[in-house]
Amino acid sequence: MTRQRINIHQIAKLTALAIVLNMFEFFLPSPIYGVKPGIANIIILFAFVKFNFQSAVYISLIRVFVSSLLLGTFLTPSFFLSLFGAFISLLFLYFCKFLSKNFFSLFSFSILSALGHIIGQFIIVRIFIIPDNGIFYLLPIFLLFGFIFSLINAYVLTKVITSSN
């Protein structure tokens, strides 16, 4: 696996793809409100693995802003949830940078960033939106779904990368 230099065109292309996946995910029906597969994370992980951490940060943050503008949720609580989730997710990805590539693959990165996203959202919900400890009863449900979907995402991305090589 070789890391390539990334230019602004590639970031723009990948961001557009991430926004499309985010919009698609928005229209997917969900049995539990708030449980989403997080397929836009596939693109961020792709950028992280193929290029570098910096490009993943760009794509993630631009995606959050642009998709909130398109969906009309800019500066609403759901926008801040999404933004802070993305921040913590990127923080977890930053620590993934120091993991050895011989022992850890996409599956680890995907699991850690998905769990980071959920933890970040719960922190902001607990502090600002629902200041009650009862909210943590939902935490294991969301963590379990995030865990399952992150495994599926990692599998899809591994297939994409192996077929593109």
């Binding site: 696996m1 050895s100 011989n102 693959s105 599956f107 680890s108 699991i111 769990l115």
Partner: peptide, 16 residues
């Protein structure tokens, strides 16, 4: 090449 599952993943998987 890209291996599907590496040993460190199993550790992360089990811990999480």
């Amino acid at each position: 090449m890209f291996k599907l599952f590496k040993p460190g993943d199993l550790v992360v998987f089990i811990i999480c």
